Structures are given as C-alpha cells and as structure tokens.
Simulated scan of single mutants.
Amino acid sequence: MDQKGLALRKFAVAFGFMLLAVAMSWLGALDRTSSKYVDDALVQAFSAYTVARGVNAVVSVLQSVSVGGSLGASFAVSPGEVLDPINDLVERYAAVMEFSIASLLTQKVLIGITSSQVFNVLLSLSVAAFMLSVLANVRPLTGVLFRTVLSLIFLRFAIVLAVLANSWVDAAFLRDGIDQSVAEMNGVSESVATRIAEPALVQEPAEKEQGLLDSFTSGVSGLAAKAQGLMTQMDASAAKDALEASVPGMVDLMAVFILKTLLLPLLFLYGLKRAFSVLWGWRGASLKPATA
C-alpha cells in the first residue's frame, strides 16, 4: 500500500473514531449508566457507614457504664473499658467509609461536569475544526487540532469509562460480599443493642453518720445491689464477644471499599491514559497526505 493510501486509511479511522465519540457524547448512554452505578454505590457506602455509627453508639453506651461502691473508700469499675480496641477499629472503619463516600461524590461531580452540554458542544466544535483544517489543507493546524480533539475525548470519557469498568468488577466480585458483610454487622449491632439499656444509677442521698461495721455492711449491700442491677441490663463480656465477631467483616469492608473507590478507579484511569498516550503519539502530520 502506498503512502497516500495508508494516510487515507488512517484519516478514515480517525474521523470515524471522532464521529463515534461525538455521537456517544450527545446520546449520554454511558453517562447515565455510570451515574446510576455511582448512586447505587453511594447508597451502599452510606448503609455501611450507618452500621459503623450504630456499632460505635453501642460501644459508647457500654463504655459509659460504671459500677461504684464504698468499702470504707469509694471506687468505681467500668466493665466497658474492655471494648476500647473494638471502638478504635470502629473509628478507623468509619474514617475509611467517609473517605469512600467522598471519593464516590467526587466521581459523581466529575461525571456531571464532563457530560455537560458545554463539554459536548466544545467537543463537537473541535472535531468540526479539525475536519475543516484537513479539508482546507491548513497543515500548521492539523496536528494541533488532532491532539486537541484527542485530549477532549479523553477528558470526556475517561472518568465515565473508568467508573463503568469499576462497576463490572464490582458486580462480578465485590457487591454480594459487601451486602453480606453489612447485613452481618447490622445484625451484631442490633443484637448487642437489645442486651443493654441506659443504667439508671441514681446517687443515693448521704446517710447519717454510721459506725464502722454498719458502714461496711451498707457498702457491701449497695455494691451487690448495683452489680446485680448492672448484670440484668448488660453483659460486657458477652457484648465484647459479639462485637469481636464483627471484626473480620469490618476489616473486609475496609479493604473492599478502598479497592472499589480508590485503587480500581485509579488503575482503570492509568490504563486509559496509556491508551491515550499511544493515540497521542499518532501524529496528525500522518494525516496530511490524505488531502494532498
């Protein structure tokens, strides 16, 4: 094939690719699909975040309970303190979920910007300008406009395609596992919440001066009554065991949401950038002989 025939074929491929991009841009089918996926992912992320706050509230109630008494000297015991490690993990989990929600909202905003009418008009005008420069044989502008069109196409579809690729991976490998982990964590939170109630530990009025033996007996009786009341309202050890059962689910959700909302979108964007670099290296000068 001679040089002119090869250039003509390249021109036809480039022109067809540009027209397809303009048509897809105005139709907006990819935009609607990717936007719906982000909306669904946001609902899922908010659900997972709500469960985290529920677990955190339960742990906070348990940690706020204390048992006090007096055996000649006042003292207080907080059985909920054994839940400190779990509370720290819940806080980290909540922070990851907040970051995931912020990432999804950013993707939604970017999709809205790149799918706007202004962007579609700009892309269409740039394609028209490129075609006119080729037909008019304005060689200094051909290469510049070619790269301009490619840049606009990349900006127009990069986020959308990355989100769509992410949605396919999510649907195939991640979504069911996320829903199951969230449901299990929610079940643990609700089961623990039914075990506890806000302890109504009312401070008794100061008694009249008593002897040492009477004071000791009163202190032991008061401590036993409070301990018995506490055990009927909560069992910190059982609650700790139940909450620890949710730890693997929390860790899995943290890893999955980091993968789903950060690593995979960045990976797909990098792949699109590499493809764009290949097209960028296809110099517009190679199209010039097509109209010579």
Rank of each mutant, 00 (worst) to 15 (best):
V144G: 01
L122P: 00
L287N: 06
G5V: 10
V59F: 05
L42R: 11
A227V: 15
Q63E: 15
A52I: 02
A172W: 07
S181G: 01
V82D: 10
L223S: 07
V134S: 01
K4N: 07
L267T: 14
L266T: 08
L223A: 12
L272V: 03
L262E: 14
V138R: 08
T291M: 15
L19F: 04
L262W: 08
Q3H: 12
R195K: 12
S151A: 10
M1Y: 11
W282D: 13
K4C: 08
V169S: 09
I101E: 14
M24L: 14
D179Y: 03
L150F: 01
N120L: 02
A238S: 15
S60E: 12
K226D: 05
G54R: 10
F216Q: 04
A73W: 07
K273H: 11
L272F: 14
E98I: 08
D40Y: 02
S133V: 05
L30Q: 12
F154T: 02
M250N: 00
A129H: 06
Y49C: 04
V220H: 06
L42V: 15
L279S: 08
V278P: 04
F157G: 00
S116A: 09
F276L: 05
D170L: 00
A162G: 09
F17S: 15
V77Q: 05
L155R: 09
A165T: 03
S246F: 07
G219Y: 03
L145K: 01
D2Y: 03
Y37H: 15
D235S: 14
D214E: 15
A29L: 14
G271K: 03
